[in-house]
Design a protein around this nucleic acid. Structure first.
Length: 486
RNA sequence: GGCGGCAUCGCCAAGUGGCCAAGGCAAUGGUUUGCAAAACCAUCAUCCCCCGGUUCGAAUCCGGGUGCCGCCUCCA
């Protein structure tokens, strides 16, 4: 039985879909004005596991994800710069080029992490009409009011405002750092449609009944989720930071309009932290998946690192921990590879059952993973049965456990990314470096065959100095680039 | 200032009343290897931040303390 934590109510409860056998799911997607950082990616991995577990439990999942490509502002509804425009200026490109570039970058990361693509991916700018229609409805119901810079949602008109987030409007009032925008009726009111200031030409703006401008940030998810999933659906996910403002406002505007409960389950992924604190785009302190790849890490090692912790617990990122995950992944694959020849058995019921039970208990991936390791270490389980069990587990884990060494990305691929001028050897071209290693290895093999081990060891030292580790095996010597070099 | 979360082996991290606490990484011992590396096997917390309490029994509940983090501003 699948049990999931619901932010709305703050407890784990049995999952009951609206329609038997089906689960409708909306996940807040990326804002495409910059690369996704690995913290952003943590949330998408959590959602991917959720989706795969839903399927495993027999539900047909219908998944919708938005792409936020409307600028919005770096601050609240009144001040700040347009993020898309900032990104465009930085890269000297048009906002549309920026949008396409970072959307593609996100898709590439998603593919690297083996995230199952949504059934529907929808862009905010492709649904301006739907957003305007929704705002008009709100206006006609008297829930919106105009200010000089746009149309605002009157949160006082929605009695349940902030229920899911556990907000206390009084408490917010007392908050020292909250500034009330000019003319807002309530501190929590937010912009539904933002007007372009007179005399300003924005790169992204549209005509509307209220004048030229752009939609408020929250309305896009409400409008698109409603369009694709209806006035009531099962699960809505996002990062923990969305609870307070974004999702609170989405609920307010949608339920104020329909007069009924919108989403049954709200699920939120916790943050990935750095030692120094939160990873943030605005402060520039963030790591991308590409950066990890350049350092020689397998994206799936990052996936494993994430699955080693529960999605509702803050997780501190460190290269030490990622290194551990990479090693673990290599060993996992090594074992799986050795077993792979055996086939024709059914999965081991015990391990598989415990694995599934862990996942069905609010996606306890760490505990599920423990079953995977115990299975591998269990001498009493025949190889063929292990293979079948592993294959089934990997449907959720997506660690590509049967991948063999030779299929690994070539070490050092992506030449010319980050060369360290302090180490002269790295300045030699990739080609000549490989050639040099090849020659040294050949000489060492000869020396070993001649039992001239002193010479063989000297040659190995020389090779090691190039940032390469070598492995002797009955079938020959192989080498891999040491991480940190290159 | 207000709200919320977390503190478990060197590192990461499950476990939320009852077999003297999963799993991964590291470490140590061993097998293997010309030596290494890799791989494999074994070992590795009577103890869960501190103090007090509840209970037959607590890492798990309650009170107090200390420390760390997040939110209240765009943010996954």
């Amino acid at each position: 039985m699948l049990r999931l934590y619901n932010t709305d109510g703050r407890k784990v409860q049995p999952f009951v879909p609206l329609e038997p056998g089906r689960a409708r799911l909306y996940t807040c997607g990326p804002t495409v004005y910059n690369f996704a950082h690995i913290g952003n990616l943590r949330t998408y991995v959590f959602e991917d596991i959720l989706k795969r577990v839903l399927r495993r439990c027999g539900y047909q999942a219908r998944h919708v994800m938005n792409i936020t490509d409307v600028g919005h502002l770096t601050s609240d509804g009144d001040v700040g710069e347009d993020k898309m425009e900032v990104g465009a200026a930085r890269e000297r490109k048009t906002v549309w080029e920026i949008r396409d570039f970072f959307t593609a970058a996100f898709m590439a990361d998603a593919k690297d992490l083996r995230l199952d693509p949504p059934d529907t991916t929808c862009r905010a700018t492709d649904h301006i009409a739907e957003q305007i229609a929704m705002v008009r409805e709100l206006e006609s119901k008297g829930i919106a009011y105009p200010l000089a810079d746009g149309l605002y949602f009157d949160t006082a008109k929605f009695p349940g405002y902030g229920r899911m987030a556990g907000l206390d409007p009084e408490g917010l009032m007392a908050g020292a750092r909250v500034e009330v925008a000019e003319g807002k009726r309530n501190i929590t009111d937010f912009c539904l449609w933002k007007l372009t200031a007179p005399g300003v030409k924005r790169l992204m703006e549209w005509d509307s009944p209220w004048g030229r401008g752009f939609p408020g940030w929250h309305i896009e998810c409400s409008a698109m989720a409603r369009k694709f999933l209806g006035d009531n659906f099962d699960i809505h996910c996002g990062g923990i930071d969305h609870v307070r403002v974004h999702h609170t406002n989405e609920i307010a505007q949608t339920e104020a309009l329909t007069g009924k409960k919108w989403v049954n389950w709200w699920m939120h992924g916790e943050f990935l932290l750095l030692d120094e604190g939160k990873m943030s785009k605005s402060s520039g302190t963030f790591l991308t998946l590409s950066a990890l790849k350049e350092r020689g890490y397998d994206p799936l090692a990052y996936r494993l690192f994430l699955m080693n912790a529960h999605y509702r617990k803050p997780l501190v990122f460190s290269f030490e921990a990622l290194e551990g995950a990479q090693r673990a992944l290599q060993r996992l694959r090594g074992r799986a590879h050795k077993l792979a020849a055996a086939a024709g058995a059914a999965p081991h019921p015990g391990y598989l059952q415990r694995f599934d039970a862990a996942l069905e208990d609010d996606l306890n991936a760490p505990q599920a993973l423990a079953q995977t390791w115990e299975l591998l270490h269990d001498e009493s389980v025949p190889p063929a049965q292990k293979v079948a069990t592993l294959a089934s587990m990997d449907e959720v884990l997506q660690l590509d456990v049967f991948r063999t060494e030779s299929e690994k990305p070539e070490p050092g691929a992506g030449a010319g990314m980050t060369q360290n001028p302090m180490v002269g050897v790295l300045q030699m071209s990739e080609e000549s470096l490989r050639e040099k290693i090849r020659q040294l290895l050949e000489q060492r093999t000869e020396a070993r065959q001649a039992h001239d081990f002193a010479r063989a060891d000297a040659l190995r030292a020389e090779i090691t100095a190039l940032g390469v580790d070598i492995k002797d095996s009955p079938t020959g010597t192989t080498w891999t680039r040491r991480r940190g070099h290159r």
